[in-house]
Design a binder for these strands. Structure first.
Lengths: 191, 191
DNA sequence: ACTCACATGTAAAGAGTTACATGATTTT
DNA sequence: AAAATCATGTAACTCTTTACATGTGAGT
């Protein structure tokens, strides 16, 4: 999803500055979208030129003027059109899964590390799912609840699988599986 | 994962031409990695310069010389090093999930379409999981079986959730949920 | 007849991230 | 004292994908 469409989407949730858009994307769509400020500012400028958003300057003391953007009716229509016309892809890009595939080439401790890290991340997302709903429940539509349930379902099943099969994959790695982690910075260690 | 590392990884499975690497990546890692020929050829050339692969020219009739690349010992070590040093990320980039979030802005038929398409894709992957294992089981290591199980687990739980909650999300869309699909090419249809 | 598979390689174009430039205020 | 938050904007850089350039043979 390109930066312009993301901006349009976030603006359906309410007026925002570029800075705020980045934060909202990170907080609420971070699991499946991303944009950086470097692409948001140019995107916003062009959307403004195209009349899809309007911009209101708000003076501030000791800071650059805040530019609050609002979606126009045309902008809203454009966003809907984009969501209708664009094929809705869903892709996983994962160095973690690649690592799993090549586990037998790697030291067991690294396999264990990657696995545990990934499980922990999933667990962390899961733990914060309720907070996410609380934040989004009101400003987001009913889709937010659907997504929260989707996320819970996916994460729970992933965690369950990974916990159950963790040892199987670690055993495949090279060397001592008991080795806890990567060598520390001052540790001379033969690999 | 950058093109060079991907090439190194594929070459651990056996000697390949650039053309073959693309096919193998598509077929066996397609669910979580991608590279195009335009990045493979330059990557291979540089790996060769760096001594991480060797290249053997094979003459062919009526076709450009085939260049068969093989991993060197240094290359294998480099690959392992990269897998150890690189943090193993796992990201989902999904316009599909974004569409779900904004479902209440979209016509119900579009929500239905996206949902059904996604379910069908998942189902398709699931149906081919066994074929994938059959192909990879021998040339890939034990990680292949782990991944196949991981995939089955994820897809089954995702499909189950989506089937169970499909109607809930479609109901959120605008307009008649009974409408089956997008307007056909010859159909004049008021939206 | 036409399209797909085989086979390599280059160049242009596209899209995004990181870093630079600036700087006050609040939190740690 | 250092780091994070707030705020915008540009430019360089990186990395990829797409298109171009070239051609044969087999399958539909």
């Amino acid at each position: 999803m390109d930066a312009k469409t993301v901006c349009l989407g976030v603006l359906t949730l309410g007026d925002s500055t570029g800075y705020d858009i980045r934060k909202k994307v990170e907080e609420t769509f971070g699991h499946f979208l991303d944009v950086s400020l470097g692409s948001i500012y140019p995107a916003l400028a062009e959307l403004n030129r195209e009349g899809l958003v309007t911009c209101e300057r708000v003076a501030q003391d000791a800071r650059p003027d805040k530019k609050v953007y609002s979606l126009t009716e045309t902008g809203r229509a454009k966003f809907v059109r984009a969501m209708i016309d664009t094929p809705s892809r869903h892709r996983i890009r994962s160095e973690f899964l690649a690592l799993c595939f090549f586990a037998h080439h790697l030291p067991a401790w690294r396999v264990r590390e990657a696995l545990d890290q990934h499980i922990e991340e999933c667990q962390c997302f899961l733990d914060h799912a309720d907070d996410w709903v609380a934040e989004m429940g009101s400003i987001g539509g009913p889709g937010a609840n659907f997504l929260a349930d989707y996320g819970r379902n996916s994460l729970e099943s992933e965690i369950a699988f990974l916990r159950a099969n963790r040892d199987r994959l670690i055993a495949v790695g090279v060397g001592d599986p008991g080795e806890a982690a990567a060598p520390g910075p001052n540790e001379n260690r033969a690999v």
